[in-house]
């Protein structure tokens, strides 16, 4: 009986340790995703490439590091369910292009900011990576939280404002006024 109890305890400790190491590993992985991406983005903006080249690099980085399908579904919300497969495809490619255009535009006026990676905390199936975007000359840093799932970014919160949630409200309002096809057309126009 005592042996059995010891065995149970051993099993419990072992499984607890496995759990801890799994959580620890995925937290580290999530932080690694953010660090690698930041290094790549920095390398891309520092080369002083032309707008077109930078956009090309950004689009590669975006595709490699962001789970565009998950983000696109999330921002479309309930309209995703009612969309036809054709609308979904069109929306995804237009959305991806528009986001890439938006992200590469943000790095146009890069002035020597750096990203400090802080603590990682689990959030359901995903990990939240806290970072600070340090401003040059001691300006107020900007707090950015990256939500990472399956090794890819699924949302970014800037000073508590989720890009995905904001985009969803934005799209939702546009769709209820103009319809999904109009939104797709508008995004296609913007993504160029």
């Amino acid at each position: 009986m005592a042996a059995f109890r010891r065995w149970v305890v051993t099993c419990m400790v072992a499984s607890a340790m496995t759990l801890v190491s799994v959580v620890g590993a995925s937290a580290q992985e999530a932080a690694q995703v953010v660090e690698n991406m930041a290094a790549q983005v920095l390398a891309a903006v520092k080369t002083g490439a032309s707008d077109a080249e930078r956009e090309q690099q950004m689009s590669q980085l975006f595709r490699a590091n962001f789970d565009v399908n998950a983000i696109g579904q999330m921002v479309l919300g309930r309209h995703w369910n009612s969309a036809t497969p054709e609308q979904r495809d069109k929306f995804m490619s237009a959305f991806e292009k528009a986001e890439i255009r938006a992200y590469s535009g943000r790095f146009k006026n890069y002035q020597g900011q750096t990203l400090k990676v802080g603590k990682v905390s689990p959030n359901g199936a995903s990990q939240l990576v806290e970072t600070q975007l340090m401003q040059p000359q001691g300006g107020q840093p900007i707090r950015i939280v990256w939500e990472i799932a399956r090794g890819k970014v699924i949302d970014i919160q800037v000073e508590g404002v989720s890009m995905g949630m904001t985009r969803r409200s934005d799209f939702n309002a546009y769709i209820s006024r103009n319809g999904l096809d109009a939104l797709i057309a508008e995004l296609q126009k913007r993504g160029g």
């Binding site: 932080a31 290094a39 920095l42 990203l115 400090k116 990682v120 707090r143 000073e159």
Partner: peptide, 30 residues
């Protein structure tokens, strides 16, 4: 969302109180 964040993280100034060094993790600047 911004107001929710301000209300939740009571007292925390915009950013300065963010713990950059979690237990066992070195501070990393890239």
């Amino acid at each position: 969302q911004r107001r929710v964040a301000e209300i939740r993280q009571k007292g925390a100034p915009q950013t300065a109180s963010l713990a950059l060094v979690a237990s066992g993790r070195p501070e990393l600047g890239f």
